[in-house]
Design a binder for these strands. Structure first.
Lengths: 218, 218
DNA sequence: TTTTGCCTGTTATTTGCTTAACAATGTGCT
DNA sequence: AGCACATTGTTAAGCAAATAACAGGCAAAA
């Protein structure tokens, strides 16, 4: 009732940055560093030291004046906030290039976040393993999700199947979906949805390139 | 000096939505629709009709009271704003699974945004074609970028090569980079940079799943 | 003809987040 | 000891974007 609700009110952007801080910190730790200043963290990501301090203030972690933040401690504090104690099981739905890329990204990096299943409709892929993870038929979605206690699905199927696959995932009791399909999906209130559309981002970059070159050309 | 600077001040989020509106509108057009209401557009994406109208107001496009917006016209207006007349040439740097996935996504969808080259260090891939696009050696980056007039690079190399590859791209005169590497890069002021980190997003989804289940369990 | 309802387009308010400003503190140098 | 300085932690101001509120208009129904 108290502490958890407190973390729940952390800004979304802060949550994202905490994840990035942690990864940067782990690299520093591997390099033998024990302490770090806010402006050093800020330099790795490209933000300001003020923002780093503000984020750390929000999670209630204090550094020391002369040495900065204890890297080991800070990693643990961040992990305590963003990791689930039990770990969260992930499925990649759609084993095309994007699905396989994500599989590789995530495999073994975060031990509290494990990809335990892939799904596809392609008979060639079903039953095979990729990076040690079995690929199941989409028809077995509900069964496998329930059996392996999968909470999070990464949706990387072709756009035309987005809607129906999302529905299946919801019916199977999934708790969060990360939709990389260019087509927006709808989910009930209690399922957390995050969507990212690569084409949109690409067009945005193209737009600012265009703007910039028009500016120069005048 | 006048019109272009005006569009330059459009909110970033509006630019993103315009790209999405356009894609949704093109599908509607294919389905034989000629006009559409703001709330219909809002339904396809998951936003409110107010926001749609506000975005369209910002770009100065007016609908009619009884029929809504003319789909064909609106597509043209949006295209005029976000597309570069000459078209913008794109390179995919790093032909792993993610690079190939992006290649497939973009190929042929946007004729004003064309992937004209891939790059990799793997000898097996160099010289080969994928989806009709030649894969070059990273060593030839500068030469090829100059020759093919490539303005935009999608960075999908392994994280350990992010920094050095980004530097090469900047030296080669690239105007915009879309970095899908988990490692932040630095570019000069005049290069537009957009970064997206899949692991961060995944951890964010996991965090909100965790929050939600703790909330239920009390 | 008047009224009702459903749209659009614009202005005002609120929210969420970033940036700036500054007080507090401990360390090393003189 | 006393001063200069780099760094943290917090509060206040500023910005960008989303949401709310509402004015205006046309078309069909009464």
């Amino acid at each position: 009732m108290k502490i958890k609700n407190y973390y729940k009110n952390l800004p979304h952007k802060t949550i994202e940055r905490l994840s990035q801080y942690r990864r940067a910190l782990m690299i520093c730790l591997d390099n033998g560093k024990t302490h770090i200043f806010s402006h050093e963290i800020a330099n790795i990501q490209h933000i300001t030291s003020v923002q780093v301090r503000r984020d750390l203030m929000l999670i209630g972690y204090s550094g020391t004046l002369r040495k900065g933040y204890n890297i080991q401690d800070l990693i643990e504090v961040i992990s305590h906030i963003i990791d689930d104690e039990e770990g969260i099981k992930v499925a990649v739905v759609g084993m095309g290039n994007l699905g396989r890329a994500l599989m590789k990204y995530v495999r073994g990096k975060r031990h509290k976040l494990e990809v335990v299943a892939g799904f596809d409709t392609n008979e060639e892929k079903i039953g095979k393993e990729y990076k040690g993870v079995t690929c199941y038929s989409i028809d077995d979605l509900e069964k496998v999700i329930d059996k392996l206690n999968i909470k999070l699905a990464i949706l990387t199927v072709p756009a035309k199947y987005s809607t129906e696959t999302a529905e299946k995932l919801v019916d199977a009791g999934i708790k969060g979906i990360l939709n990389y399909t260019p087509k927006p999906i709808r989910v009930p209130e209690d399922v957390y949805l995050e969507e990212y559309d690569m084409i949109t981002t690409l067009e945005k970059v193209a737009f600012y390139i265009k703007m910039h070159q028009e500016e120069e050309g005048e």
